[in-house]
Simulated scan of single mutants.
Amino acid sequence: MRLLSVTATLLLLCALSPLARAQAPAPAKACALTAVAGEMHELTSGGRQRTYRLFVPPAIAGRAQLPLVLDLHGSGGNANDRAKASGFEALAAREGFAVATLQAVDARWNVPAASSRPDDVQYVSDVIDHIAARTCIDPARVHATGFSGGGRMSSLLGCRLNQRIASIAPVAGLRWTGPCPGRAIPVFTVHGLADTVNAYEGHADRGAEWVESVPEALAGWATHNRCQPKLLQDKQTGPLQTLRYGGCSNGAEVRLARIDGMGHIWPRAEIDASDAAWQFFKNHPLQ
Score class of each variant (00 low, 15 high):
A100L: 09
A208V: 09
P215E: 06
H284K: 11
Q279M: 02
V56T: 09
A252C: 06
D205I: 11
K235D: 15
L157P: 01
A79R: 08
K230R: 13
A113I: 11
A217P: 08
V105D: 15
A59G: 05
G251E: 04
L231R: 02
C31Q: 09
T7Y: 09
Q65C: 06
Q279P: 04
R255C: 05
N78R: 12
D106E: 15
D260E: 15
E39Y: 04
L157E: 06
S17I: 14
A100D: 07
P179V: 12
G263P: 07
V254G: 01
G146A: 06
P57D: 05
D129A: 15
E270S: 06
R183E: 07
V99K: 05
S125F: 12
L218R: 03
Q287L: 10
A100R: 01
E212Q: 15
A22K: 09
V171W: 09
G151M: 07
V171S: 02
T196E: 14
V69R: 00
S5W: 14
T145G: 09
A169E: 12
I60M: 01
L66T: 05
Q287W: 10
T135K: 01
C136I: 08
I128T: 10
G173C: 14
A194W: 08
G251L: 08
I128Q: 03
R108M: 04
L66E: 03
A166P: 07
G247C: 01
D119T: 10
S167M: 05
S116L: 04
M262K: 00
A64G: 11
L3C: 07
D205G: 00
D126F: 08
P58I: 00
G173F: 13
G173L: 10
L70P: 00
A194N: 15
V124E: 02
Q279F: 06
T9G: 14
T196W: 07
S125K: 13
A104W: 11
A20Q: 13
I265E: 14
W266P: 07
L157K: 03
